[in-house]
C-alpha cells in the first residue's frame, strides 16, 4: 500500500502540536503501537521545533497572544512543510524549511550541542530523532533552508523491545 500526504503551515510554535498529531493520524490506519506513535510524534516535534526556532529564529514563540512586537510579525512569513510517504509499513517523513540553514550539520547533530542555551534548549533534538526513528538524514544549505528526512519501519517495536529484556 502506498499513501502520501503533505502539509504546509506557519512556522509558529502553536503549530507544533498540530504537526505531530497530523502525522500520527496519517499512519493510524496501519494500527501502530502506542510506542511507535509516541516515537513518531516526538521525532516530528523535534524537527518542526528546530525549523521554527532555529530555521526561522521565531524566538518569542511561546504562543502568547499580544506579547510579540509588531515588527516581529514578519517571522510568520516562514512556512514549514511536512511530506509523509507510506510504503507498505515503512514511513518516510520529510520536514522542510526555507530558513537560515545550518552551517555545520555534523556539529548541530552532536548531542547536547545547542546554539540557544539561553532558551534552555537541551541540544537533544537530533539525538531524539535518531533514537526514535530508524534512519535520519539532514541536508542543509546556509541561507536557503534545511531538509530533515526520517524513516521508520512500523510493526517491529514489539520485537525489538522483547529483545532488549
Amino acid at each position: 500500500m502506498e499513501n502520501e500526504m503533505e502539509i504546509i503551515f506557519d512556522a509558529v510554535s502553536d503549530n507544533e502540536a498540530f504537526a505531530r498529531v497530523a502525522v500520527a493520524a496519517f499512519v493510524s490506519n496501519l494500527n501502530p503501537t502506542m510506542e511507535e506513535l509516541a516515537d513518531i510524534k516526538t521525532a516530528v516535534s523535534e524537527a518542526v521545533t528546530n525549523s521554527i526556532i532555529h530555521g526561522y529564529e521565531n524566538l518569542y514563540g511561546y504562543g502568547r497572544p499580544g506579547r510579540c512586537p509588531a515588527d516581529r510579525k514578519k517571522t510568520n512569513e516562514g512556512k514549514v512543510r511536512i511530506r509523509c510517504v507510506l510504503e507498505d509499513d515503512v514511513l518516510h517523513i520529510q520536514v522542510t524549511d526555507k530558513g537560515k540553514g545550518i552551517e555545520n550539520v555534523e556539529q548541530a547533530m552532536e548531542p547536547l550541542y545547542t546554539t540557544k542555551p539561553e532558551l534552555e534548549r537541551s541540544g537533544m533534538g537530533f539525538a531524539f530523532m535518531e533514537a526514535f526513528m530508524d534512519d535520519l538524514e539532514v541536508e542543509s544549505t546556509p541561507g536557503e533552508g534545511t531538509v530533515v528526512s526520517m524513516t521508520k519501519k512500523l510493526g517491529v517495536s514489539a520485537w525489538i523491545d522483547g529483545k532488549e529484556q
Binding site: 516535534s45 534552555e120 537541551s122 537533544m124 533534538g125
Partner: peptide, 13 residues
C-alpha cells in the same frame, strides 16, 4: 502523555 526535548530543557534548567 507527551514530552519532547523541550521538556528535558525544562528539567535540566
Amino acid at each position: 502523555r507527551f514530552m519532547d526535548s523541550s521538556g528535558i530543557g525544562v528539567i535540566m534548567g
